[in-house]
Write a protein that binds this DNA or RNA. Structure first.
Lengths: 230, 230
DNA sequence: TTAGCCACTTAACAATATTTAACAGCCATT
DNA sequence: AATGGCTGTTAAATATTGTTAAGTGGCTAA
């Protein structure tokens, strides 16, 4: 996944520079504009994931720019920066369908968190997830379809078998901590869950008998690891 | 369009009452709970558009509740209420993918504006979701016309079949939580509705037999996912 | 009105998945 | 070697899901 592109429009040179520097440092591809008109022309030239607009700016204010942007790209998330106590502004901004706003002064950290939250939300929808297959020895674990293909044919898996196998297969030759596995798959590390996991380990070992090169080794008191030889 | 349903979980009786009264007056269908556990049980029984959770509460804190809710319904927007200077809390909350948070004390007006903004945003994406045709494998689900076109011909659907198929088809390869599906389509998660849904799943699986590349996989205790191979 | 159809629900039973119990073996430590 | 705490394995007990059929109530066409 490539960097998210941010359009920052801020007329205060000081704050503008800080924003630009900080966001760039945090891994965003940041474009800084000094006023609304510049912001508009940059917006037209490029494709952004999020816009951060100061409300009070010369030539073209942030809300006007925001409205124009929404006309072209309704779903672009916008964070408005506004001075405190500008209630009228806030109201108007939110009426446009603004996604968020922050009153000055604000902490960079908080801004960063909001950016993260918004991007996570908007990007989630267009994630396309590839089907996952894990290979080890003569096996192919088809995690999404919940079955394993072995040298002697396929084998349907239950959800727990599937999860446990994936955990092991994703860390071949590496130790999988018992407690970690329990918390990961069963939700918490309790006596009965641990016994249950042992039962599943036993089942999985049976399945893996089809290829002697693949083994699950237990490290007493620590956990297990799947080992593939040859 | 009917009233938006809000789930408010706030242990301070004073603030709780104020929130409840104010939001109800402003036209929201507001459910007030006194602690996290009550909030969870209300959430399970009903379908909400937005949750407002106090972070510090007895029995079950707001973040824990928020996490549990997200497991069932990832896209439910949440506003966290938190005391000032709880940076750690804020950070953790936003990491969950939280949609917003407000530090106490806050003005009712500001809360209202945020609620409005969030609802506007999420309802917008619901509209986008109203695609007419969903494709998966050799099938075309014509949601609006309530039928499915398969390799061996068309098939009329009942509304429940239609809804359930859409839910699965709109999240190919992704888990659809059982409880979420129930609330989405049947209105609430009860024993009999769950059995009813199982019956419908069975029907749908029969229909989907026409293309072996398409499968509905059950994840025990969690839900299902529609998987398309090839 | 009323018989019949349809969508949906409830019931009943079958099949699976997971947990718990029971017992056997192993491991490290004394 | 003996002890107590872990792990391996199998089987029984529960819980969840799959499937089919019967029940229910609303709606429509005669």
């Amino acid at each position: 996944m490539s960097k998210a592109k941010l359009l920052v429009v801020e007329d205060d040179p000081n704050l503008g520079d800080i924003l630009h520097e900080y966001l760039t440092m945090k891994g965003y591809d940041t474009t800084l504009c000094r006023d609304g008109e510049e912001g508009w022309s940059k917006f037209k030239k490029d494709k952004f994931d999020l816009a951060i607009l100061d409300v009070m700016m010369p030539k073209k204010d942030g809300f006007t720019l925001g409205k124009e942007i929404k006309k072209v790209q309704e779903d672009l998330p916008v964070i408005y920066l506004t001075a405190k106590n500008l209630k009228e502004d806030i109201i108007e901004g939110l009426k446009i369908g603004a996604d968020d706003y922050m009153t000055k002064p604000f902490s960079m950290e908080e801004l960063l968190l909001r950016i993260g939250a918004i991007l996570r939300r908007t990007q989630k929808s267009d994630e396309i997830q590839a089907l996952k297959v894990y290979n080890f020895g003569d096996f192919e674990l088809h995690y999404d379809e919940q079955y394993i293909k072995g040298p002697n044919g396929d084998h349907k898996l239950t959800s727990k078998e599937n999860e446990l196998l994936r955990l092991l297969a994703s860390e071949i030759n590496k130790l999988v901590n018992r407690s970690h596995a329990l918390k990961q798959i069963w939700g918490d590390d309790s006596y009965f869950n641990a016994r249950s996991m042992d039962v599943y380990l036993s089942k999985i070992r049976k399945i893996l008998k089809d290829d002697p090169k693949v083994q699950i080794i237990t490290v007493h008191g620590e956990g297990f690891k799947m080992v593939v030889t040859g």
